[in-house]
Nucleic acid binder design. Sequence first.
DNA 1: ATGTTGACCTGTAAGC
DNA 2: TGCTTACAGGTCAACA
Length: 279
Amino acid sequence: MPELPEVECVRRFLAHELTGARLIGAKFYRSDLREPIPVEQFKSSLKNQIVESFSRRSKYLLWNSCSGSVGIFHLGMSGQMLLFDQAAPRLNHTHAVFTFKNTLEGSPKYLHFVDPRRFGRISVSTSSELERHPYLQQLGPEPLGFRSLGQHLFSKSRTKTQCVKNFLMDQRNVVGVGNIYANEALFWAGVDPRTVAGKLSQERYERLGEAISATLNEALEQGGTSLKDFINPDGKPGYFRLRLAVYARAGKPCLRCDRKIISIRQQSRSSFYCPRCQR
DNA sequence: ATGTTGACCTGTAAGC
DNA sequence: TGCTTACAGGTCAACA
């Protein structure tokens, strides 16, 4: 589910609601997702500490406490962070509940980590060791605000024989782009997703770089993409679904030329493209 | 070394 | 009404 725009929307909401609050309770309902959760280390590092900020690296949400400890969250395919003002009943797949309290006054807030498929991750590190954490150490550059993204992708791709769409989704090349936004960016750049990455010209990578950043920014403004079950922590969906040009639009007319959007499988993921506009 | 496939999970929708 | 199959926003071990 969550690619960069969705995670960033979650980050912004939590930053607005929980910055400066103290974690007064952390309850885990299981000790593993796809991998074990370091439950005891998480609690001893973050419990009773004040939240300094929420940040994001790639699709990871980072919870920075004033003590220098950092909680690391990945939402996988089906993960959600839901914030409640009252002790709400747990949904079926709520694996952790964090209770926060603003230092002086106020009632507690409850943050639920929900993830039916359990492809998500929870870990903990410190601000000084963060970049060496196994989850984060291989990641490529952030796409937003990266002036020469197109140039970077061009030079990284020269020896690559894989398809450009797979190249874009490899988080070592650029982070945050998943299946939805890879498809969308390739459409806006006019690039066929099957093109060999190493054969695309510098000029076309420049265009692709701009398309990636424009697509991600527009999705951010819309609160992300809700295909079926993604919602932001306040319970509201994202509206970028209404602006999707190709993703999940097989058989429907291309927004530019009216030809039917085609669906194929690449690396056992669905790809969608317009056979006339994308070459 | 690089590229591809399938595994990890549950839920939902479509097909029979 | 079942039952079976395919597919879903990500990542990575295991293989070619």
